[in-house]
Design a protein around this nucleic acid. Structure first.
Lengths: 350, 350
DNA sequence: TTTTAGCACTCTCTTCATGAAAGTGCCAAT
DNA sequence: ATTGGCACTTTCATGAAGAGAGTGCTAAAA
């Protein structure tokens, strides 16, 4: 963390200036340029000394000796946590985002539309989850075998919603096994999130007489889990924006990211992992550069937040851009869009 | 067309050789290289003379004087129409494609899965339409106003299928106008495809007393049309493969194409236009390079075919790659996948 | 008549040297 | 604490030189 880093006021201004300049110009910044371009009233030499110290603190780095400085991931993190001024959307952006209000009545269309708007407003890639009940505790569950290899899973959530899904399994279902699992889970359920539920399923203590089902149960549970997950659609928009970014001009740089985005599973995991990496009180999550665990996205940042449908369901929506993405602006726009989305969807379901 | 082009046997072999080599090596071919690499028993000079004539016929061209030759769009066209040997899938491909059989029971999942398989097998971009009834004649239609700005459109197709869609309009609906339009259309319907139907709607001769509705009617019809179209989902897979192709290494080359693919409307139009450009008797359509009307896709070819759900519905599925795509192989794989898709979907609905 | 060898010419691509720009660190002076 | 000066680095653009691959044309050979 960066809480122990203490900077003088001047260092803060300097860091802030470097980051804002770099976000726009995408070129290493030297001491002379900083003085001239941003009207500092000290000499380049002073700036040099300050920058050397900022580099020592890990907030800046040089791509090579005798080049200007570039903000490091930690530098951005400090900026986002402590320096950033709130962004006020321009009138054009405001007007642009207002198009979110007049939308159709299908959730799918609303989401598609929203991510396209956000993508256009930020000139970046946008990803979103379809609304899920993953954040809502499960009150009860029921599994009914249909035939040899298929079953219906019914989940009852704490807010009263029920969800059913037809699941085809690779191997035969044993109905006694099913009912035993069901009973056990319902007895030990409490208020459990779906993910925890599956964890319970997988570690469920088999009684002696059905011990030899062990592997069958595990297979089944993991299959059900992946089935339930697969149902949650991923929305993606604006991937081609990436190719316009100076840092992704070579196809070797851009390829891994586009490749990554083609796998819904990865994107889903990424979105679901966001909340763990960031302080829970924050409204808009930032995952900066290397903070995420996917090496394909090392040079990217994700700015995401959650939208809600009333208390019924929710989903993540986020923007992916280069590490030097315009944090204040994008965070503000993401929040606006998620807000409108919450509003529109909630109105739709009441 | 290329029907008048007559080539000696040797020229055919030569053209064929050049195309096949270029598909693999993506480099202009010179006379010396051809002789050495492909064991021609004539001298480079002879090859040079032959190539000069093939260039005169428009089948080859040189990127600059004193470079080797590259097949032109017409060259590929001649190859596809007259020279190409049928491709026999390798055992691995066969096995790979067989995964199409064991799929889920949702049309959406089956399509997603199929295009992913095809994309992996061809290392190219795959696009597909969701099944539509666009190829099925309409027997009757009905429009029921719901409230001021919404209506239900019911279409009855010649094979008995009915489709309803709820349509929200921007401006108020006049119910007398609706019933008038409905009556007129049903009277003059015959067996009409959906596209023709909308054409009829737009040109429908208004009676004097409602003449002043004219614009309202046109607006409404175009809105309904775009709504009906929008319902037809576009599937897309493997876009990142493009960045691996030598001809799209620079982002300026790759960007317009990825940009194009992000617009469902364009892709839909592209797929719908395929059948017009190619002879109707062919099973697999090829649109080579400039033959398509989208300048973004000038350097690409599209290889597409139609899959069917029984006699109920159908859709296009196709592969997009660089102009020097491996026509025999991809045509064969596209056909296989479309075949399996037809089989799986048809089984599902009977 | 067709094929081939020879030759002059063209165009691209790589390599290398060179110099300009922009930057740094450090030291001594302010 | 700040600054000017200076030696030193590193990248980048430019141009020259030479290798490599190819062509067209002509005249001789088959």
């Amino acid at each position: 963390m960066d809480h122990q880093i203490q900077l003088t006021e001047r260092k803060k201004v300097l860091l802030s200036t470097i980051i804002k300049d770099y976000i726009n110009n995408v070129e290493p910044l030297g001491s002379r340029t900083i003085c001239k371009r941003h009207g500092f009233d000290v000499s380049p030499a002073t700036i040099r000394n300050e920058m050397a110290e900022l580099e020592e603190a890990g907030l800046l780095y040089q791509p090579h000796t005798s080049a200007g400085r570039i903000p490091s991931d930690q530098g951005y993190r400090f900026f986002v946590n402590h320096l950033m001024a709130p962004y006020v959307p321009t009138p054009e952006e405001h007007q642009f985002l207002s198009r979110l209000q007049q939308t159709s009545k299908a959730v799918d269309a609303i989401l598609s539309h929203s991510i396209r708007i956000l993508s256009k407003a930020t000139h970046s890639i946008v990803v979103a989850e379809a609304p899920t009940l993953r954040q809502t505790p499960v009150k009860g569950l029921h599994m009914t075998p249909i035939d040899d290899t298929s079953m219906v899973l019914t989940l009852t959530y704490s807010n009263g919603i029920q969800r059913q899904s037809l699941i085809n399994l690779a191997q035969p279902v044993y109905s006694d096994m099913l009912s035993m699992l069901t009973n056990y889970l319902n007895a030990h359920l409490g208020h459990t999130l779906l993910d925890e539920l599956f964890h319970k399923m997988a570690t469920f203590p088999l009684e002696r007489e059905i011990q030899y089902y062990k592997n069958a149960v595990l297979d089944m549970v993991s299959e059900i889990y992946s089935h339930v997950q697969r149902e949650e659609k991923i929305y993606l928009s604006g991937t081609s924006h990436l190719l316009k970014e100076p840092e992704f001009q070579t196809t070797e740089k851009a390829y891994p990211i586009l490749q990554f985005l083609e796998h819904d599973t990865f994107v889903r995991q990424l979105l679901q992992s966001v909340a763990f990496n960031a302080p829970p009180e924050s409204e808009v999550y930032c995952v900066i550069g290397n903070e995420n665990s996917y090496h394909e996205l090392q040079d990217c940042s994700l700015i995401a937040t959650r939208y809600y449908i009333d208390s019924k369901a929710s989903g993540m929506i986020g923007v992916i851009g280069p590490t030097r993405i315009d944090y204040p602006k994008v965070m503000s726009l993401v929040q606006s869009v998620a807000g409108s989305l919450t509003q529109v969807l909630t109105k739709l379901f009441t």
